[in-house]
Amino acid sequence: MTVRGAEVAGSGKGASAGDAGVTTGVLARLRRDAPWWLLPVTVVVVLGGFIVYSIWASTTGVGEARNAPYLSPLYSPGWLANHIPVFPGLLCILVPIAFRGTCYYYRKAYHRSFLWDPPGCAVPELRHGGYRGETAFPLSLNNLHRFALYGAVVYIPILAFDAANAFSLGGHLYLGLGTAIMVLNVVLLAGYTLSCHSLRHLVGGSVDCFSCVRFGRQRYGAWRGVTRLNVFHPTWAWVSLFSVWAVDAYVRMLNAGWFTDPHLLFR
């Protein structure tokens, strides 16, 4: 093997590439150390389940998703949902969908689980040839993640407003189990949004020399803060998904009259 000094290296795989390979059949190369398929199967079931659920939920209309003082995040902001004739819920959550769809964590999840690119580490892929990754439409749109972030950030105060509304019923202080779930949902969504890789880049990651730029120390501090949250980005992604589902399902269960909301009302 030789690395030549001045010349520009040309070949990719060495001369023995084509005729060699180490393949003695797919089975011989399959991983034998762990049930690698467990993760993709779980993701398909859970994430797929959520997608199906939210499509269904978004067709029912805002009436099903509201139970004063609660409002499902799938239909937030409420005033907007009131003016959309078809799939009102789905349109309300377009921005969150874009945010999650281009999220660096969910990209891993769906590439592995739904697209099988790859289904697991060191697991052979079914597809050969034609792989373009994120260089071609539509996956190249993932590069626009930061714009989805800008939108998602707006949703945090909107949902916080909804959660604040859940503290009052008929002008009186109201503390229900639903209130707690809605507050928790805002916190988890904020955690998910603030741990975003794009945010990490925007607040400080783009800086090469913190000590050389204006507000460098503050940007370094912000970058450190987001980095700390970012380590748990997958966790935030999952728990906030569950909390959105939980609020929506809770409201629907109340509407269905399965039980009444345990609460305190301060008259």
Binding site: M1, T2, V3, G21
Partner: peptide, 20 residues
């Protein structure tokens, strides 16, 4: 990486990338 023999492969691709 292309096989050379047994457990040894030709990793020259990596060194070529580094040069670029």
């Amino acid at each position: 990486f292309p096989l050379i023999k047994d457990l040894v492969t030709d990793v020259s691709h990596a060194y070529e990338v580094n040069r670029r």
